[in-house]
Design a protein around this nucleic acid. Sequence first.
DNA 1: GAATATACGGGACGAGCATCCCGTTTAGGA
DNA 2: TCCTAAACGGGATGCTCGTCCCGTATATTC
Lengths: 188, 188
Amino acid sequence: MRADGVRNRRKVLDAAMAAFATDGLAVPVAEIARRAGVGTGTVSRHFPAKESLYEAIVLTRVEEIVARLAELAATRPPGEAFFAFLAYMVDQAAENRGLAEALAGAGFDIEAAATRGGHDLDGAEAALLARAQQAGAVRADVTNADVKALIVGCVARERGATDPAARRRMVEIVSAGLRRQGPANGQR
Amino acid sequence: MRADGVRNRRKVLDAAMAAFATDGLAVPVAEIARRAGVGTGTVSRHFPAKESLYEAIVLTRVEEIVARLAELAATRPPGEAFFAFLAYMVDQAAENRGLAEALAGAGFDIEAAATRGGHDLDGAEAALLARAQQAGAVRADVTNADVKALIVGCVARERGATDPAARRRMVEIVSAGLRRQGPANGQR
DNA sequence: GAATATACGGGACGAGCATCCCGTTTAGGA
DNA sequence: TCCTAAACGGGATGCTCGTCCCGTATATTC
């Protein structure tokens, strides 16, 4: 492979990461090419379809997430690890519009991409949840799909205005709701 | 106005309601025309832009919602009214993909449409929340934007598979999180 | 320094869609 | 029954994109 090919591939990848993060997955390929300082043909040649760009980028994100998850699971007690991971995911999604869209299921199947890349994101999340439930830190009837939807909700506030305080408050609310309810709390 | 004009306008409106509810706001105008049994020209003449279709349909939904909100506020104690409205909104959005998309801010500004139609949806929701907070039923630091985002989260589960039990569970979780926290709950 | 495979740029092409237009049809009154 | 304004259908048009192609340029090898 030629050196300029490697270099340009890298530039496209970086530009696409930035573009997806700020403008979302619907950003036109031409805009990515513009940001990378190359022609659209160069983008298409390195990534035959837009999907391949999604995939290449999402995979690195997934790797980071899986690593973070493993680290939390290894170093913290079950409940704490679960809630820390929840907060981490919300922060990631809040800073990356493309990731938020992917998590919301708009335009890209992130789980499928993770699986194709050899990562079992869903399984790892489910295990983290299950451990937290066994430890009595999380309601027993919650499913992993519930948790993923709630993460989407935490990021669904006013587009653009990512007030960190509001984000923290959202995570708090959802965390409180997920915690096993005390016996004296049973109204409704 | 001619009788067939009135009739066709009605047919288009009904078809669009059904199409938006099942297929979302991105459904092509041609598909709406097909469902209504008319040509695309007829749709365009009655509703010059797709936006006007959105608006006409959303307005009836908003009216229902505002009426329901007023009824709950008038007949139930503050906290109960608030949580009942939350559950109501989630049910509505779960049964209507177009409404869910509009609430999530994807492709249509529902608040603006409500305002143009003379309804103050946001204000009414905020008042309901404020009353529940004054009554001590809901955390004092929660904003109306938070609540709206959480509603989106409750509906963000796997597309299509609208398991009623899961939906109820999501509402429970979010409601629990929104309730004023007991003093003994302060872990984290 | 020449030869060649590799890569580049950006225009061409086609798909999907909203909107507009106009020749044809029809409702409703005289 | 006839006339005309109103309404209809669906093809034409224009726009935004993703993808493909090909004439040109350049890195690499001998």
